[in-house]
């Protein structure tokens, strides 16, 4: 059962204020996923403080670096059910996990951070892993 929107709104804004586009409908997910060129990161947001409380600041911190994906979006598991289900349909071989982070290059999944790689870690550690992925796959910004 979804939580109150009052409770969830700050958790949405923690990502959207960092430039993450929130996808609330299956159609928005399709539009995001159907753009195949370049790099894209999809964050599966979650209410759970045990892991999502570290995932969101970790994502924010990683996005402050020199290299970042061309496009970054999120869906909210347990809240926007249809959008989350549609997002998961694009990675059918990956067991559902929230929070989690999927990274695509030219439409292909090249990295996945499941919940158990976030739990018990701090935001710096999550950001460090994501920064490494950005360094490997994202273009150097033009100076």
């Amino acid at each position: 059962m979804p939580y109150s929107e009052l409770l969830v709104r700050p958790m949405r804004e923690e990502l959207t204020s960092a430039g993450v586009k929130e996808l609330r409908t299956p159609e928005e997910v399709d539009a995001f996923m159907n753009e195949k060129s370049g790099t894209a990161m999809l964050v599966v947001n979650s209410v759970c403080g045990c892991a999502a409380g570290m995932a969101r600041p970790g994502v924010r911190q990683a996005l402050e670096g020199d290299r970042r994906p061309d496009r970054v979006a999120s869906v909210f598991a347990g809240q926007d059910l249809e959008a989350t289900a549609r997002a998961r349909s694009y990675i059918p071989d990956i067991p559902p996990s929230s929070p989690s982070v999927a990274f695509f290059k030219d439409g292909e999944l090249v990295y996945f951070m499941p919940r158990h790689r976030i739990e018990g870690r701090d935001a710096n550690s999550v950001a460090r892993d994501l920064t490494q992925v950005f360094a490997e796959h994202c273009a150097v910004p033009a100076s």
């Binding site: 700050p10 759970c48 403080g49």
Partner: peptide
């Protein structure tokens, strides 16, 4: 920010 369960 999130839901935590300190009694666990």
């Amino acid at each position: 920010m999130g839901t935590f369960h300190q009694n666990k």
